[in-house]
Each structure stands twice: as C-alpha cells, then as structure tokens.
Design a protein around this nucleic acid. Structure first.
Length: 139
DNA sequence: GCCAACGTTGGC
DNA sequence: GCCAACGTTGGC
C-alpha cells in the first residue's frame, strides 16, 4: 500500500470531471515524463493518491484510488508511455493549499515542494497523514 | 503574462 | 556521450 500525488490543471481535468467518472474511473493519460511514468508503473491497485489542482487552485482537493495497474496510454501510439486508471475515492473536507503545505516544516520534503513540476509523485505515509489532517479528511 | 527550473531533443 | 537549444510546466 503506497501513497501518491496526481497533479492536474483543473481546466484540463478537474476533480469534478474525475468524480463524474464514478467507480469506473479514468486512465491518467497524457503523462510524457519518464519519472512520472515510472511511478505509475510502480503503483498497485488499491494505492491511494492525492488529487492536486495546479495553477489556479494550487490545492489538494480529493483522494483517488488506483483501480487498474499500468497499461499502455491510449492517447498515444508511442509504446513508451504507460498509465494507470484512477477513480475518485472521497473529496477533501477542506482543500489543503500549497501555501499551507509550504508553511508546515514537517512537509518541507514533499516532492510537491521540492520538485513542483513533477506531475505524478510519491507521498510518504507521514506526509499522507499530515495533509489529510490539515484537510480534516480521513486518511 | 513572466520567468525560472527542468526535461527532452538533436547536432556534433 | 556531451551539451546547447528548445519547449513545457507551474508558481508568482
């Protein structure tokens, strides 16, 4: 059981879009970065991830669950790119903003803070619990 | 809208 | 295999 963070621009793919997909979920396609892809290859069904809105919101707004293991990204014929499927698990009671995360010294090592451009990232169990706590949301 | 940071590409 | 050029991302 591992924890992750999925970043998306809400104008492209928002939490509401994700929720609308229901339990069927949606493939996390379009990732064209090797690090991010490798993290998705390492994911297992049942792993949980934060759903983070970049750009306008800059906040964690929900929790998704990996519901299909890595498979070829259907948005390209390029064999290099794989992705997982995720489904909405639950919304954050209170979204946790990037500012809040940056303000907490215990979260200073989060990849979100250290490498803001990586779109799929690992989250430690401690970080998971802390961010859920800030959002008054069940881990 | 700008710009810094970073990843990728391609010429050598 | 190196490195300059370029494109993209995302915070500000």
């Amino acid at each position: 059981m591992a924890y992750w963070l999925f970043k998306s621009e809400p104008e492209t793919w928002s939490w509401d879009n994700q929720v609308a997909k229901g339990d069927a979920g949606q493939e996390w396609d379009g990732v064209r970065n090797y690090q991010a892809r490798n993290f998705m290859r390492a994911m297992q069904v049942g792993d949980l991830g934060f759903f983070y809105h970049s750009q306008t919101d800059k906040a964690v707004v929900g929790i998704v669950e990996v519901c299909a293991p890595a498979h070829p990204d259907s948005s390209t014929d390029d064999e290099r790119w794989d992705c997982v499927d995720v489904r909405a698990a639950r919304p954050f009671v209170k979204p946790v903003t990037l500012d809040q995360i940056k303000a907490d010294p215990r979260l200073a090592d989060m990849v979100l803070v250290k490498n803001s451009r990586l779109s799929v990232q690992p989250v430690t169990e401690d970080e998971w619990r802390l961010v859920c706590g800030l959002g008054a949301t069940k881990p």
